[in-house]
Every structure is written in C-alpha cells, then in structure tokens.
Amino acid sequence: MNELAQQIVSGLATGSIYASMALALVLIYRSMGVINFAQGEMAMFSTYLAWQFAQQGMPLWIAFPLTIAIAFAGAVALERVVVRPVERAAPLTVVILCLGLLITFNGLAGWIWGYTVRTFPSPFPTTPLHIGSAAFSSQDLGIIAVSLLSLGAISLFFGKTKLGLAMRAAALYPESSRVLGVRVGWMLALGWGMAAAVGALSGLMVAPVVLLEPNMMQGILVYAFAAAVLGGIDSPVGAVVGGLALGVGLNLIGAYVPVIGTDLQLTTAFGIIIVILLFRPAGLFGRRTMRRV
C-alpha cells in the first residue's frame, strides 16, 4: 500500500515534468503547427541562466522570475529574427531550423558552463513529507502543484482574455484575423515567448531532481512529445493529462508487472500509446481535423 502510494506520487512528479514540457510543445504547435524540437534545450539554457544568477548570490525569488522573463523575451526575439523568415516555408524547413537551434543551444551551454553535472538549488525543502507511514519528497509535491497551476493559468489566458482569443484566432485563421486587425506575426512571437516561459519554469522545477547538465532535457523531451501526442497535440489539458498518465503508467508497469519490469516498461508504455492512437488518432483530448470536400 505504502509502495503503491509512493509509486503513484513519484509517477505524478515525473509525469508533471513531462507534462510541463508537453505544455510548451502544445503552445508552439497551436500557433505554428510544428513541434519545436529546441524547446527542451531552450528550457535547459534558461535553467543555466538561473543557476548563474543564483551563483552570483541572487536570491531564488528574484532569480526565477527574472529567468522566466528573459526566456520569454529571448524567445520572442528569436522568433522575430530567426523563425520569421521561414514562417511561411514548408513545415519541414521550420523543423530543420528547430533542430539547428537544438544543437546550437546544447553546444553553447556546454561551451559556457561545461558538461559537469551540477546540483540546482531547490525552491522546495529537501526534507521528506510524512503522510501516514509513507514518505514523500516535498520536491515531488511541489512540482505537481506548479505544473497544475501553470496549466490553470494557460487555460484562463486562452479562455478568458482578449489577447488569448486573438492568439487562437491568429493560429486558426491567419488571413481573417489579419483583416480584423490582429497582428498575426506578433501573435506567433508571443506564442514562442509563452512556450519558452513555460519551458523555463519546467526546467527550474526539474533541475533539482534530474540535475543540471546540457543534456538534461533530451530524454525528457521524448517523453513530453509522447505525452503531447497521447493527450492530443493541440490540447493543453491533454498535454498535462498525457504527461501524468505516462509518468504514473511507467512507474506502475515497472513496479507491478514482473514480466515487464523496469527493462521493458518503456517499450510497453509506447506500445499502449500506439494502440490508443489507433483508436483515437487525434489523441485523448485533441480535436479531430476534418476537411470538407
């Protein structure tokens, strides 16, 4: 019973890591229709910035918001300067560009900060939290809370604000939006900025757990991608549900199905995802795209 609770909470925590990255992927997908493969590396780079600020003696409650702001501004600038020229090109061009950004950020971080594994200051206490006879890491509970909060904020933004509405319109009907006075180009840049901010937040949350190094996000990005596809690539709620389901599912399969064990949990989990997608190609929460002929 104890172990079950432990496995579920730790699964929810790793699931939240996947979920928050998946959320960032979904944000870009919604505005541009492509996956930004550099999302993880951008988050890693932001996390290094925060680490650098903390090294210089800046308190975390200033360093974290500052980092998120820089990530937002940096990504807006990146979209304006680098992505804009290929915005209307074939999706493949954008994908290749993103892969280029991935390699650039990874190399840059290695060059500036080296490849040594570093610990990252945690905003949460390191002492375990005892509930009944099980011990949970406060870090895990913190990560779960933060990713649920950011999902809530994003849903509110898209559902209740004018700007959010404009962004959705710009993504879905760029031409009509332009006619109505929405600055479509800037909406895309804003999408990049928000995705980077969410990514940076997720980097800051996971770095104390997965430790800070230039390759910290690469494995996570693969799971995040799977989570996003499982939940429906254009649905923020789907991204979070997909991430949590993946995290908990992997843990439970690994711990309780002895035949599969930790050796095959990954294969099995992805097998299940494929089966789900066979029946629901748009993912659990995705909108089915229909084309009228």
Partner: peptide
C-alpha cells in the same frame, strides 16, 4: 534504469518496498 530516464525515484521506491 535507461540512460534516457528522467529520474530513478521509482526504482528506488521498488527496492525499498
């Protein structure tokens, strides 16, 4: 664990259990 895993907390929980 696989080198791509995000965390080994689950494995540690199994060993403890």
């Amino acid at each position: 664990y696989e080198v791509t895993d995000a965390s080994v907390a689950s494995q540690v929980a199994s060993l403890k259990a």
